[in-house]
Computed example of a mutant assay.
Amino acid sequence: MHRVLVRCRINRLWHVDRVTGEPIRRYEMTRPGELVHVDVKKLGNIPDGGGWRIHGRALGSRNSQAHRNPARPRKVHGRANLGYCYVHSAIDGYSRLAYSEALDDESAATALAFWARARSFFAGHGITVERVLTDNGSAYCSHAWREEHRRLGIRHSRTRVRRPQTNGKVERLNRTLLEEWAYRRLYTSETARRAALSAWLHHYNHHRPHTALGNLPPITHCTNVSGQYN
């Protein structure tokens, strides 16, 4: 029976949620800036010379031991504590225009500074943020985040606990970032990987077809942008 269902391409219940079994309610925005999704993705730093993905376990481990930050104590015996890269991302729910930065932590101050630069990025493309959706991370539950949005007049919403699907657009962006930027090439240092992010973002926003946009890049759904009149 399963083989028959697979052959007919009806073996998966795409119309229901896998956890609850309830019908999926997809929502689309009507204008740029109506809802912006924000999230953070945590990645392990790459040691100088390259890690196990490029050299294998033996040499990759030696590079990690040689280039670990001595100021960072080991959390696991025998494993170098290289630290983490925190990729902060924001994506407009209507146009899918995305902005990301690779930063050193996910504190409230860092998240707010990133969000200020992200709003400037969106403003440069004619997008005024009206509402932002995040998960329940400590930075987004902080008093500083709440007060800043109250001052800006931006409505802040949070997802239900353990329900990342609610913030699905930025979660999908995170997966695309991993597949096409973070792990697509074999980088020899964390500096090299972070330096490649801005070029990939330009490709994503200006050239990469997006299936939700009729295979057009996100920039085509922005208004008040030079050269765009839709």
Rank of each mutant, 00 (worst) to 15 (best):
A199R: 15
E22I: 04
A192E: 15
A66C: 02
A123I: 02
V87R: 03
Y86T: 01
S107H: 04
T128D: 10
N215H: 15
P164I: 03
H203C: 01
P209R: 11
L177M: 07
V16T: 11
L82I: 09
R25M: 05
H125S: 04
T30Q: 13
I10V: 15
G51R: 12
P217I: 11
G93S: 04
T188Y: 09
R18K: 11
V170H: 02
W200Y: 12
F114I: 04
D135L: 02
S64A: 15
L43F: 15
Y99G: 02
A109I: 12
K41D: 02
I219H: 07
H149F: 14
L173F: 02
D39F: 01
Y187V: 01
R26Y: 11
V161K: 10
N230W: 07
L82S: 01
P164M: 04
N63H: 15
N45L: 15
W145S: 01
G49N: 09
A182P: 00
T110Q: 05
Y204M: 08
S142T: 05
Q228F: 12
L197G: 01
L35I: 06
S89Q: 10
N224L: 11
R184H: 10
A139L: 05
R3I: 07
F121N: 03
R31V: 08
G124M: 11
A116E: 13
H221F: 15
N69A: 08
E106S: 07
L152W: 13
H37M: 06
L103I: 06
M29R: 14
V87D: 06
I10R: 15
Y187R: 04
G56L: 09
G21T: 02
V4P: 00
W52G: 02
A109E: 14
R72M: 14
R146W: 05
R163C: 14
A199F: 03
I46C: 05
L35N: 02
Y140P: 04
H2T: 06
N174Y: 00
R194T: 12
L82G: 03
R74H: 10
F122M: 09
S157Q: 09
R62E: 15
E22M: 11
T110K: 07
V36D: 03
A116D: 07
M1A: 12
S226E: 15
W145M: 08
D105A: 05
A139I: 03
N167G: 07
Y187P: 00
H143N: 12
R26I: 08
T166I: 11
N230K: 11
H143P: 04
S61T: 14
T159Y: 01
R18F: 02
R150C: 00
E22A: 13
V6Q: 15
N230R: 14
V225P: 00
Q165F: 05
I154D: 05
E147Y: 10
Y86E: 05
L177Y: 01
S138D: 07
Y204N: 09
P217S: 06
R62W: 10
T134W: 03
R72P: 00
P209S: 08
H67R: 03
H125N: 10
R7G: 05
H221T: 00
R25C: 08
V36C: 09
V38Y: 07
C141G: 15
V6S: 07
C141A: 12
A144H: 08
S142R: 08
Y27R: 14
F122Y: 14
H210Y: 09
E171K: 04
P23L: 07
R163D: 13
G21K: 08
R160K: 10
I219Y: 06
R158I: 00
E130R: 13
R131Q: 14
L112F: 02
T220A: 13
